[in-house]
């Protein structure tokens, strides 16, 4: 009797161990298909917005929504602060991240009208270090096609992109330069930077 319980408990414990060994492995391993799936959904949403030909204000809203859904906004915002991020409190970072979200939406949403009539096609995906790189082609009317690359990671808990490169120019490095310059102009004060971001874009 007692022996049986022990054996059952042992069996259960073994099962739990096996499960524990499998679960984090699964959670960590972002597959090519998942990364590609994210970018395909993202691109379908982008194509729908540029095909809609809506007003600038509407496109800004659309882009902000897309950015929220598919990008790891907190990590992008934080990485744009660089090493300075360490100096600030969680509340300060949260307020800054919120302002950053609106700023990016306005800045890039405005530009969406230039892509009206164009589309993005997804090409290849390859694993790089801890993330996946999904490359695509932007096809515009009357323009030579150009390459876009999305860097996708699931470190946030689900697959999200954390950088977008257009012909080699990284949105994250570009914004890092911008945020760095703005922080300098505001005397290194994140409160003033946040206020400036709310007006910018």
């Amino acid at each position: 009797m007692r022996n049986e319980i022990t054996r059952r408990a042992f069996g259960f414990g073994l099962g739990a161990l096996a499960l524990a060994a499998v679960l984090p492995g699964r959670a960590l391993a972002l597959t090519d298909a998942a990364a590609r799936g994210l970018v395909e959904k993202l691109v379908a949403d982008i194509n729908a917005v540029i095909a809609s030909g809506r007003s600038e204000a509407a496109m800004i809203q659309d882009f902000t929504r897309i950015f929220d859904r598919y990008a790891d906004v907190p990590i992008i915002a934080r990485s744009c602060l660089g090493a300075d991020a360490r100096r600030f409190s969680t509340a300060e970072i949260a307020a800054y991240t919120q302002a950053f979200r609106g700023y990016i939406g306005r800045k890039y949403g405005k530009r969406f009208r230039e892509f009206v009539g164009g589309r993005v096609a997804v090409n290849a995906v390859r694993p790089v270090k801890t993330w996946h790189e999904v490359s695509g082609t932007v096809i515009l009317r009357n323009e030579a096609p150009f390459e876009v690359r999305f860097l996708v990671s699931d470190k946030s808990g689900r697959p999200l992109f954390f950088d977008m490169l257009i012909e080699g120019v990284s949105m994250r490095l570009t914004e890092r330069t911008e945020i760095g310059a703005l922080l300098d102009q505001n005397g290194g004060d994140i409160g003033r930077l946040t206020a400036a971001l709310q007006r910018a874009g």
Partner: peptide, 29 residues
């Protein structure tokens, strides 16, 4: 785009440009 690989850089001051997730102070997780 190899020379521009934002993640090819694993040393030096710009190492944080590579992977935002591996950088301790840039990684909220």
């Amino acid at each position: 785009g190899a020379a521009l690989d934002p993640y090819a850089d694993t040393t030096g001051a710009n190492a944080t440009d590579a992977d935002p997730y591996t950088d301790p102070y840039l990684d909220p997780y």
